[in-house]
């Protein structure tokens, strides 16, 4: 318990260092642009592929579970849309990003720690926590909502394609379904969750990597811990945020 509390304390002390005033904003700006590409743009591919197939599967499962004639066919499109917006494009995509981006961040910072690159920054008088972590947080906070929007669009598109090709509904039914009883607030809800999840992924993974002690084995462990802890916190905050935002 004491160890857990000291880790939580250390996490918040790290955040305090991260959010202190940058030494030279222009250098941080360049670093943030680099992280946009490194953490954001390189995730577009995997999010697109996974979202397409998630949308396809949701559509087919909804179709096969609502074969009763009393259910109108447009419900398939509605189910696909709401599932993607409310849960899959924010939470499931965040879990996938926790694996990809989280392990990436933890191993990068961990390697920098064990190869004394972080010490080198400190010796120069650079606030290493802020220089290394703040651009990652800013980049993911700004870019992950874009990934969520891409995921929603591609997922619904994937659902439409799969449903049409499988012959479980007509394109007209699907398009009517995705427009039916649309609540714009659901998009806001999804984006708010994404922002929280982005912060969890980046800060928790950075914390795991930044404080690595030892060698390559510990870097690997930190990377695993980053994914596990980020995922658990994402699931926990998913419940909390859902209760707060939808109740």
């Amino acid at each position: 318990m004491i160890r857990f509390l000291s880790q939580v304390g250390l996490y918040f002390l790290l955040l305090k260092k991260v959010f202190s005033k940058p030494e030279k904003p222009i250098v941080y700006y360049k670093q943030t642009m680099r992280e946009f590409v490194y953490l954001g743009l390189t995730s577009v591919g995997i999010i697109t592929i996974i979202s397409f197939f998630m949308g396809a599967v949701i559509t087919l499962q909804t179709a096969y579970n609502t074969e009763n004639p009393i259910y109108p066919k447009y419900l398939i499109g509605l189910g696909c849309r709401d599932s993607m917006i409310l849960e899959f494009s924010s939470t499931i995509a965040a879990l996938i990003l926790a694996g990809k981006v989280g392990s990436n961040i933890a191993s990068e910072l961990g390697t920098m720690r064990v190869s004394e690159q972080i010490d080198a920054l400190e010796i120069m008088g650079v606030n290493s926590a802020s220089y290394l972590i703040l651009p990652k947080i800013i980049a993911t906070l700004l870019f992950n909502p874009i990934l969520t929007l891409i995921s929603i669009i591609v997922g619904i598109f994937g659902g439409g394609i799969a449903g049409t090709l499988a012959g479980v509904m007509t394109p007209e039914n699907f398009i009517y379904g995705i427009q039916y009883a649309f609540i714009p607030y659901y998009i806001v809800y999804s984006l708010i969750k994404t922002v929280f999840f982005a912060f969890i992924i980046t800060s928790v993974s950075s914390f795991q990597g930044y404080y690595v002690e030892g060698g390559s084995l510990e870097v690997g462990r930190a990377s695993s811990k980053a994914v596990v802890y980020s995922s658990v916190l994402i699931l926990l905050f998913n419940v909390i945020l859902t209760q707060l935002l939808l109740s």
Partner: peptide
């Protein structure tokens, strides 16, 4: 930081930024 701006350090593993 003021003193550190006057310090140069060579680390065992060089510690160049990859």
């Amino acid at each position: 930081k003021v003193i550190r701006s006057e310090i140069g350090m060579l680390f065992q593993g060089s510690a160049l930024f990859d």
